[in-house]
Structures are given as structure tokens and as C-alpha cells.
Deep mutational scan, measured.
Amino acid sequence: NLAEVVERVLTFLPAKALLRVACVCRLWRECVRRVLRTHR
């Protein structure tokens, strides 16, 4: 699944970079939201 791969990669990025990549597309924005939720 593409979303799972994107989420896996996003887990390695710092928070500032996550906010930046959330603007790329809807899929990435949803993935960033899930990554941020799991880090809390």
C-alpha cells in the first residue's frame, strides 16, 4: 500500500519537515496526520 510506505518514510522526518510535506497532496497530508497521532 502506497500510504503505508509514505507513512513509514515520514516517521524519520522531524516535525518541521512533516508540516512542509503535508502541503504536497491530500494523501501525504493524511499520512502526516496519522504519523503525528502515533507519536503522541
Rank of each mutant, 00 (worst) to 15 (best):
E7A: 12
L10Q: 03
W28K: 01
A17M: 14
L27T: 12
L2W: 12
V5R: 05
R29F: 02
E7G: 09
V6R: 02
L36Y: 06
R37V: 05
W28T: 10
F12N: 03
R34M: 05
V24Y: 02
F12P: 03
A3R: 15
W28Y: 04
V21Q: 03
V6H: 00
V35A: 08
E7P: 02
V9W: 10
V6Q: 01
E30S: 11
C23E: 14
V6C: 12
L18M: 15
W28M: 14
V5Y: 01
R29T: 05
H39Q: 13
L18H: 02
T11L: 08
H39Y: 13
K16N: 04
R34A: 04
L27N: 10
V6D: 00
C23L: 05
R29E: 01
C31V: 11
F12D: 05
R34F: 09
L13N: 05
R34E: 00
R20I: 12
C23S: 11
L13H: 06
L2S: 01
R26F: 00
H39G: 14
F12L: 10
V6A: 06
V32P: 00
V5S: 04
E4T: 12
A3P: 02
F12E: 05
H39S: 12
N1C: 01
V35L: 12
C31M: 15
C23G: 13
F12A: 12
T38Y: 10
P14M: 06
V21L: 12
T11G: 14
E7D: 03
R8K: 12
K16H: 03
T11R: 15
A3Q: 11
W28D: 00
L18Q: 12
R40E: 11
A17Y: 13
V21G: 08
R20W: 09
A17L: 13
V9C: 05
T11A: 15
F12W: 12
R29H: 03
K16T: 06
V6L: 11
V5K: 05
A22W: 02
A17F: 12
C31D: 00
E30R: 13
W28V: 15
K16I: 00
C31A: 12
K16V: 02
A22E: 07
R20E: 02
F12M: 13
P14S: 15
L19I: 02
C23Q: 15
C31P: 01
V24L: 09
T11K: 13
W28S: 03
E30I: 08
P14Q: 15
E30D: 14
R37A: 08
L36H: 01
C25P: 06
E4C: 06
P14E: 15
V24A: 05
V21C: 10
R40W: 09
C25T: 14
R8W: 06
R29S: 04
A3T: 13
E4R: 15
V35Q: 01
E4H: 11
A17I: 14
L19A: 15
V6N: 00
R40C: 13
V35Y: 05
R29C: 03
R26N: 03
L2H: 00
E30P: 01
V32A: 06
R29Q: 06
L27I: 12
L13W: 09
R26K: 11
R33Q: 05
R33H: 05
L10V: 07
R33G: 07
V21D: 03
A17E: 06
A3V: 10
R34L: 07
L19M: 14
A22P: 00
V5N: 00
